[in-house]
């Protein structure tokens, strides 16, 4: 069974994958385009998502080896960085983090990720908008009547597309804030 889904929030994704497991569907592969392949299973599994920045080859091997020793199988994830999808049969140790320090470090990695992608989008936005407004049609705001409305309606989809980087800045900003909130709760003594 294949399903399409897009998650900006790693924790929502983890939750969704575990909901599918509760229904008896185990995720077997995930493609970069958001296509999840599931198979029916009678066993009980759990899924946990980790986030790692770029890891050199040796480090990534070690990372994989430790998780696999603990019974986790790597479903998806690249050593160049990003979400790491781990799956394991349900038993008495179903977590990948067992103390506050490592949980806090996980949110710190998520903060770093949102921060840099947000910055990148900010830079894109700046280079797109620095010489012009959002609407590019010359004299648009001086047009009258139906001509104005037609021109406005025609251009609006392009404007939405052009404002994507700004929306992404807002999005990464909010996910940075969410990770920061969780991080600071864990840091509190």
């Amino acid at each position: 069974m294949k399903m399409f889904n897009m998650f900006f929030d790693i924790e929502k994704e983890e939750q969704w994958l575990n909901e599918q497991l509760q229904k008896g569907y185990r995720c077997t592969t995930i493609s970069g385009l958001g296509i999840y392949t599931f198979e029916k299973t009678d066993n009980r599994y759990v899924m946990r998502l980790d986030y790692q920045d770029y890891l050199p080859k040796k480090k990534f091997k070690e990372y994989m080896a430790i998780y696999e020793d603990f019974g986790w199988s790597h479903i998806e994830g690249h050593r160049l960085g990003g979400r790491q999808y781990w799956q394991k049969e349900d038993d008495d140790q179903n977590e990948i983090f067992s103390d506050r320090q490592s949980m806090g470090n996980y949110y710190k990695r998520l903060m770093g990720y949102s921060f840099w992608l947000g910055m990148l989008c900010l830079f894109f936005s700046y280079s797109i908008y620095k010489d012009s407004g959002l609407y590019l049609t010359e004299g648009l705001w001086n047009m009258k009547g139906s001509l104005f409305w037609k021109a406005l309606l025609f251009e609006t989809p392009f404007v939405l597309l052009r404002s994507l980087p700004v929306l992404m800045v807002v999005f990464f900003g909010s996910s940075f804030y969410r990770a920061y909130r969780k991080y600071s709760l864990l840091k509190e003594k």
Partner: peptide, 11 residues
């Protein structure tokens, strides 16, 4: 009982 990610990060 340490979890995998905690142990990896701590090491």
């Amino acid at each position: 009982s340490l979890a995998a990610g905690t142990l990896y990060g701590a090491i």
